[in-house]
Amino acid sequence: MKPSPPAPIRWRRFFIAPIKGYQYLSRMLPGTCRYYPTCSEYAKWQFLFNRPDRAFAATTLRILRCNQLFAGGIDYPRVRWRPPAPAFAANPLFPPGRILAPLPRTNPDDREIAIQYWIVPHKPGEYLILKAFDR
């Protein structure tokens, strides 16, 4: 029996599913968003990295700005994030405070890591989310 995912992942899927549906349908229409990333992609990133209330607020403000009165441009999502403790980053299966050895690799020669997002410092305690693209 497969265990259910933790609660944060379940609510993220709940909020991201309609956004993905909208993105699928909007591919058939001409692009009209004045910002990069698009408003729907911005909303998706917000729900991936923020609490639902903050994601709703940021997404609503972004959609209200997406009109002819604003110039548009590049507007990456801003999130508040606290980096994990070094002991937790070394072994994420155990709570912080317990210093443990790093997890063993299944294949020691496999050192390639697929990076999906970059978390870039913006202000103290505030970070920008940037999507990593293939070369």
Rank of each mutant, 00 (worst) to 15 (best):
F56H: 07
T60L: 14
R51Q: 08
C39L: 07
I115M: 07
T38Y: 09
Y35W: 14
R10W: 01
N67F: 03
P5Q: 14
S4N: 09
R105L: 15
F49R: 06
A17V: 01
W81K: 01
I99F: 07
P5M: 09
F88V: 10
R98M: 14
K20T: 06
V120H: 10
R51A: 12
W81N: 01
P37M: 00
A132I: 02
F133I: 07
D53E: 15
G31C: 10
G31P: 06
P6H: 10
R12G: 02
Y117R: 03
Y76Q: 12
E112L: 11
F15Q: 08
K20P: 00
G21W: 07
P8Q: 05
P108V: 04
R78K: 13
L93K: 10
F49M: 08
N91I: 07
I63G: 01
F14T: 10
R78W: 03
Y24C: 08
R10V: 08
Y36I: 07
T32S: 13
P52G: 06
I9N: 07
R135K: 12
Y35P: 06
K2V: 14
R62Y: 07
Q46R: 11
F94Q: 13
W118Q: 12
K20C: 06
V120G: 04
R54M: 11
I99D: 12
P6M: 11
K20D: 15
Y117W: 14
A17R: 14
A58D: 15
L69Y: 11
T59Q: 02
T38W: 09
S4D: 12
A43S: 09
R34E: 05
W81D: 00
K123G: 02
K2R: 15
F47M: 05
K44N: 07
L64H: 02
A90K: 14
P95Y: 04
P5C: 05
A132P: 01
I129T: 06
G21I: 12
R12V: 03
K2H: 11
Y42V: 01
L100V: 02
S40P: 04
R27L: 14
P96N: 08
Y24K: 15
L69M: 09
P77V: 06
E112A: 13
S40D: 05
Y42F: 15
R27P: 04
F56V: 12
K123R: 14
P102H: 01
P104D: 05
E41G: 01
T106N: 08
A85F: 04
Y35H: 10
F133M: 10
Q23C: 09
P92F: 05
R80D: 07
T60K: 13
P95Q: 04
F88H: 15
E126D: 06
A132L: 10
L93M: 12
A7W: 04
R62P: 04
P84M: 05
A101W: 05
A43I: 00
I129G: 09
G31S: 13
W81T: 00
G125K: 04
I19G: 00
I99A: 11
T106C: 09
P18W: 03
D75L: 02
R62G: 02
N67P: 04
P86S: 06
R80T: 12
A114E: 14
Y42L: 04
Q23H: 01
L128G: 03
M28Y: 14
P84S: 04
F70N: 15
F15C: 13
W81V: 00
A7M: 06
N50R: 11
L103Y: 06
N50Y: 00
